[in-house]
Amino acid sequence: MLTFTVRRLVLAVPTLLFISLVLFLLLEFAPGDPMAQVPLTVPPEVKEKMREALGLGQPAHIRFWKWLVQFFWIEPQVLVDHIFGTSFSAGDLRVISWQTRSPVMDIVIQRIPQTLWVVGTAYVVGVLIALPIGIYSAYRQYSWFDQTGTFVSMIGFSVPPFFSGVLVIVVFSVNLGWFPSIYDTTHKVVDWDSFMIQLRQMIMPVMVLALQITAQISRFMRASMLDNLNQDYVRTARAKGLGERAVVLVHVLRNSMIPVVTVIALGVPSIFGGAIITEQVFKVNGIGQLLIGAIQANDLPMVQTLTFIFAVLIVLFNLIADVLYGLLDPRIRYD
């Protein structure tokens, strides 16, 4: 198992390098000019200097190498410095955003809590709702509960977040006036009242995201339970007189959770990507919103770094899912 993990980790390095190269090359073709907003009265030689100040003067391969060094060598040093108060990174040039002229990673760090709060809560809520629904739907297959569950998850699959989001805004903010339609990220939780405000503004985005997550995971849970409910070991467990609760919730559930856990792990990075739209609808200024803003402002270092972070998350959670699968299911051996 350990060798498998190590081998996969080693394999992940060239994959990620290749992905970063693909992203870099894609962005190389960008027709947008970061100098487009500079007034026309600025003479061309000054513009050329400004361009060089952004690091655009050198050929592509050198800039790619610099980005790699900055991302993989200097940024971790900055992190270490930040944690331990050392000064490894003093004087080194970091990945600088063209929009704000501040280090990209600083902005990302600022934005992460918002995304984690909203998306993370939604993911947890979605999974917690999905599991019981899936279990009971499978246990009572083709009952009215199962049919309703199927229909609701079909809706969850089919209604895009930009529609369900707008719909809940119309219903709960415009008509009923219960929740604010815009997420206030400057809000600080200090006491019970401010916590309730935070809860109120989180309910709608969490609801929208959780619907999608619930739809997917409950289908997986149901299918996985159905696979196991007809197995011989279940009949054996019943035959030796175990209670129905123990059969379903211990024997069947444990075995059914194996693929579901990996699916849950696999879904984590895609939620970051999928949350782009939800963040846009509710004006949560998290990572997804940062990416949209950077794309619209032609801020290439920011776009490159953010998409690469998404890619790292995907590769990482793929790896985690595979390892989990091997750990949970003794029948699967990778070596």
């Binding site: 992905i19 894609l26 073709f29 027709p31 999928g274 949209i292 890619a311 995907i314």
Partner: peptide
């Protein structure tokens, strides 16, 4: 195929829309 599966698709789509729209 694995490589393509590891790409962040929606961000990538957005980037592609940005880059190739004008040409």
């Amino acid at each position: 195929t694995d490589l393509f599966l590891a790409l962040p698709l929606l961000p990538l789509l957005l980037v592609m829309m940005l880059l190739f729209r004008d040409p």
